[in-house]
Design a protein around this nucleic acid. Structure first.
Length: 225
DNA sequence: ATCCCGAGGG
DNA sequence: CCCTCTGGAT
């Protein structure tokens, strides 16, 4: 079906977003980042490690990692082998270990050991993409740099007709036109959480979903092909 | 087998 | 746009 993009879904997006914000707030009052962290460095490390594995498993290894390497300075001089052993169970362990060390070395060399607080500098670090950078800026620094667009946010926003693009940057821009700036990071955390708990791609838990009334796909089963 | 709160590279 | 990098849970 070749339906024109902006016709049916765009008109009252703002109103629908308001409603969705309210419903998500009610369902997920905390709006927290699930990754264990007590500072920007820790959150950055945890977020780099979280690629393609669950946050629960990240939270199993980060305390061990931080006990040994509590700062960027310490991590920067760690051996590849030792970091690999610590993060081994998370998958992609060679790339993740290399990224952690490269990130720490760049932070020490170029940012005096402090995690930078702007998007461009963060994205320039090894292993840090837009998603990770926005998580750190919004969560650890309280800077609403951008809505976090991961696979869950992408899937749900397309599903609800808030966006239609497959490009994360376009989705980010579109969402930022309709989500209040101060709520970007909370919106992101709630939506991501919702994607993990309820609006799961392969087995959506529709009966438990607080957004049913806004969902055009109620009862149509799994979302992916 | 398939999925996980991705990034980097072709 | 596609692919690869990886291990553990289900």
């Amino acid at each position: 079906m070749s339906v024109d993009p902006d016709q049916e879904l765009i008109p009252d997006r703002k109103k629908r977003v308001r409603r969705i914000i309210t419903q998500l707030k009610k369902r997920y009052p905390e709006a927290e980042c699930a990754l264990f962290h007590d500072g920007p460095f820790q959150l950055l490390v945890a977020t780099i490690l979280s690629a393609q594995c669950t946050d629960e498993r990240v939270n199993m290894v980060t305390p061990i990692l931080f006990a040994k390497y509590p700062t960027a300075e310490k991590l920067a001089v760690a051996t590849q082998k030792d970091v690999e052993e610590i993060v081994h169970s998370l998958g992609f362990f060679r790339a993740k270990a290399a990224n952690l060390r490269g990130m720490a070395q760049a932070v020490v060399a170029e940012h005096d050991g402090e995690i930078p607080q702007d998007l461009a500098a963060l994205v320039a670090l090894p292993g840090v993409g837009r998603k990770t950078a926005n998580v750190v800026l919004g969560t650890a620094f309280g800077i609403p740099s951008g809505v976090v667009v991961d696979t869950h946010v992408k899937r749900i926003c397309n599903l609800l007709g808030l966006t239609r693009s497959k490009n994360p940057e376009i989705i980010e821009r579109e969402l930022q036109e309709i989500v209040p700036r101060k709520e970007w990071i909370e919106w992101s955390h709630r939506l991501i959480h919702h994607g993990r708990q309820i609006c799961i791609a392969r087995r959506p838990q529709c009966p438990e979903c607080p957004l049913l009334k806004n969902c055009p796909r109620v009862g149509l089963g799994p979302l992916n092909k």
